[in-house]
């Protein structure tokens, strides 16, 4: 018996040691990969890290000093760029809305048990995968070539990506929805549309809304970035003032501030709303 226990103990310790060695090897491998990665990235960068790191505050310094010396102009700039900011927000808003509507339909088609015909789930899922895999900038740049600059290419590009992203998340939510209401509705002769909108959507609407809000946060950022490559909105103004350089950096500072404030505000607002959607209104103020 005692021998047996000793045996178990040595086995256990041996296993632990093997596991620890394995973890150690993995850790060393990981650290080596990271270091090699940074080394490669540094070598392929135009300017190296060690030459550049002490310049890192130069540009923000320039921006801040220009903004401070001409601080009295900032409110005027805020007004000047408010329409562009609104455009950026509208691009994100419209794209999220369109993406959510199309994503909702796609998600119902991509969920087994809810799709009107079984074979359609596979193809719809593949389409969603592809939509999700294409970065917005690809579609946006091509549409800019076809449609000219402006907010529409950005809106379409972001909306398509949103369909892919939300379609997948929505269909995961749909899978957890109870099928009983759907069966009930089917038994009284409801059509597919009625079954979906009366049986499924009310169950999953809070989750949908929460995901859509999260997507809106992401899309605001995407919309600003797409502006930077020529799709209108505040990103476009930012690029113009930045490429002007010294003398317009105070305007760049104003745009930075607007963008920062918008992103933080939308983040906070949506996180508050999402919190209420998942936990209900009762736990108000429980977090942060």
């Amino acid at each position: 018996m005692a021998e047996n226990v000793a045996q178990i103990q040595t086995d256990y310790l041996g296993q632990m040691r093997a596991k620890r060695v394995m973890n150690m090897i993995l850790l060393i491998l990981f650290v080596a990969l990271m270091m090699l990665g940074f080394y490669t990235a540094d070598a392929r960068n135009a300017g190296g890290f060690w030459q550049g790191w002490h310049n890192i505050l130069d540009f923000p310094g320039d921006v801040v000093s220009e903004a401070v010396t001409r601080a009295h102009l900032l409110p005027g700039y805020f007004l000047k760029y408010a329409p562009s900011l609104l455009e950026t927000i509208n691009i994100a808003g419209a794209a999220t809305l369109l993406g959510a509507i199309l994503g909702l339909i796609a998600s119902l088609l991509a969920t087994r048990g809810l799709a009107p015909v079984g074979w359609i789930t596979g193809p719809v899922r593949r389409v969603l995968d592809i939509l999700r895999a294409v970065p917005e900038i690809v579609i946006a740049l091509i549409l800019i070539f076809l449609l000219g600059g402006g907010p529409v290419p950005a809106m379409i590009a972001i909306a398509l990506h949103t369909v892919g992203a939300l379609g997948k998340l929505f269909s995961e939510v749909n899978e957890n929805a109870s099928l009983k209401p759907v069966e009930g509705l089917a038994s009284v002769g409801a059509s597919w549309l009625q079954r979906m909108f009366l049986g499924v959507v009310p169950q999953v609407a809070p989750n949908y809304l929460s995901y859509a809000l999260l997507r809106f946060e992401i899309n605001i950022r995407a919309s600003a970035i797409l502006g930077f490559v020529g799709a209108g909105g505040i990103g476009y103004d930012l690029r113009n003032t930045m490429s002007w350089g010294q003398g317009k950096l105070d305007e760049a500072a104003a745009i930075f501030l607007l963008l920062f404030a918008t992103i933080v505000l939308v983040d906070q607002l949506s996180s508050h709303l999402r919190d209420r959607l998942t936990h209900g209104a009762r736990v108000k103020g429980a977090r942060q």
Binding site: T40, N45, A46, F59, I263, V264
Partner: peptide, 28 residues
């Protein structure tokens, strides 16, 4: 954390590329 997130990748990219120039390190 809020500040790092709020400034957003776009602005970080601009600031960093001024110091390090274009390339994968700036992106990382």
């Amino acid at each position: 954390f809020d500040f790092l997130r709020g400034v957003d990748g776009l602005i970080w990219t601009i600031i960093l590329s001024r110091a390090f120039g274009p390339g994968p390190l700036t992106g990382s």
